[in-house]
Amino acid sequence: MPREKFQTLTEQMFYILLCLKEECCGIDIMSRVEEMTKGRVRVGPGTLYNLLEQFQSADFIKETKVEGRKRSYILLEKGQEMLWEEYERLKVLTQDFERLFDNE
């Protein structure tokens, strides 16, 4: 079940979805993620390809155009919700951390 599968996002999933806030060609995502994270997160081509396929079937993203074998995608509402959920989850983690360490 896609929903169950993406209950939490891995860093790679998070950044791929983040890249697709604006329409982007699949191949370019690899370099964008690397730029965005200053090389901290790298997405392998096999992983990227399979994740894009899974995101598409879970309606997180949709294909916008096909030029030759180059496919472009954009984030859908469901994908955006997923990103927000993850963002909120990370925020709670950060707040808990800050609360604990600020009190010290």
Partner: peptide
């Protein structure tokens, strides 16, 4: 060069 698979769970799935 970046490895082809960077997510072990996904690799195992395929």
């Amino acid at each position: 060069a970046v490895p082809i698979e960077t997510d072990e769970l996904l690799r195992l799935e395929i």
